[in-house]
Design a binder for these strands. Structure first.
Lengths: 206, 206
DNA sequence: GCGACGATGGCACGCGGTGTCATCGTCTGA
DNA sequence: TCAGACGATGACACCGCGTGCCATCGTCGC
């Protein structure tokens, strides 16, 4: 511990994250082993897994904080109004970042969008959001005397999916600006319906 | 090869699938190793991976056939009309099963819905459907002079997500009847919008 | 009867993820 | 100042998934 102490001002976790982001971009997620990542980050292999339960988790940020904020945001939503709209608003709120964070966020999201293994992992990581949103929608819809199990599940799954769509579009556009307009556009699409030219009718099929 | 020959009237692939379904339901996906599954199915471990590239793939049926049918269905879609509606119709068509298949399909879908590892795998397996649907939507929307990259991506991602929602609801209801009404309900939701009481307005947010 | 060929399975390897234990620096109380 | 507690670390061993390689065997055509 003689030299290298000042390097550790950046905590171990941050160092691992940075090493992963860098190396994944340069050589591809599947082409780098955890052993190598650990060496690059100056850490033992075992320590890597202490900070991130899976290799893929090093790319996803602090989702636990986000989930807590999401719950809180939904709990604070006014009693009236459409459940799906509340969920969309909460998702937008949770996905607020400072300008300095845009660049890193874009790198994360681009990796997630491009690497199949990370997309698969995203399904796991985002499932809690789906669950929370679905529970919220079920309760609120029941209070309004409407809704069904399918409706509640749809609100959770489709809203979260819309966020992913929004981020993909944001990344494809360079990911330099605030991503929220993209998320909002995707959420508006899921709230208002995919049918072109505005709400053409729920009976669009057949 | 003395005895056991008649058992092999069911092809190796089918035998492995059956063994997996059975054992996963009984003991849980993560609790059974491929080695054990191979023994149960009466094949070598190596043979298992020759038939299914991953342990999780034994639960998903013949998706390649479905994907081909999906492409064909979209190609045959009439020139006019809403792209998302065409996609929804094609998805419904591709998910047509005979009555005798309902039971097995329900068992598969229940496993997929309940096991996180299988949900994650579903994201990989269904990504080709997303891609095909998005490409279709992009081209058709461009031909209509409308649409955007985000719109096309949304059509693919959200439509496929709606199918998953529909299957979840179907499974939750027992999975005894035709699943298509559930898929149709979920697809109608994504086509017409999540906002309760019908299309209330695309500007629902804020 | 003899190669060709496809299906099979054994073997070894790399890698992801986990449990266990030893080590080391720091912090605290005597 | 020293002893012990505690958290962070890392070394090691282990299991399971997935893959490449090669030997084997049954079948088919010649």
């Amino acid at each position: 511990m003689s030299s290298g102490w000042d390097d550790r001002i950046k905590s171990t976790r941050t160092r691992i994250e940075a090493a992963c982001l860098e190396t994944f971009e340069a050589r591809g997620f599947d082409q780098v082993s955890v052993e190598e990542l650990a060496i690059i980050a100056g850490v033992g292999r075992r320590t890597f897994f202490r900070y991130f339960p899976a290799k893929a988790d090093a790319v996803f940020g602090e989702l636990d904080d986000q989930l807590a904020r999401f719950r809180a945001e939904l709990a604070d939503a006014p009693a009236g109004g459409d459940p799906a709209v509340h969920v969309a608003a909460a998702l937008l709120c949770v996905n607020s970042y400072r300008n300095e964070e845009f660049a890193t966020l874009a790198r994360r999201m681009e990796l997630i969008a491009r690497v199949p293994a990370l997309q698969a992992h995203a399904a796991r990581r985002f499932s809690s959001f789906r669950q929370v949103a679905s529970d919220f929608a079920r309760q609120r819809a029941a209070a309004l005397g409407t809704g069904s199990a399918l409706y509640a599940a749809a609100v959770g799954t489709l809203s979260v999916a819309a966020v992913e769509v929004g981020y993909d579009a944001w990344v494809a556009d360079g990911g330099a600006s605030d991503p929220r307009p993209y998320l909002r556009a995707a959420l508006d699409l899921v709230l208002g319906g995919l049918v072109l030219g505005g709400p053409g009718g729920v009976r669009a099929l057949g």
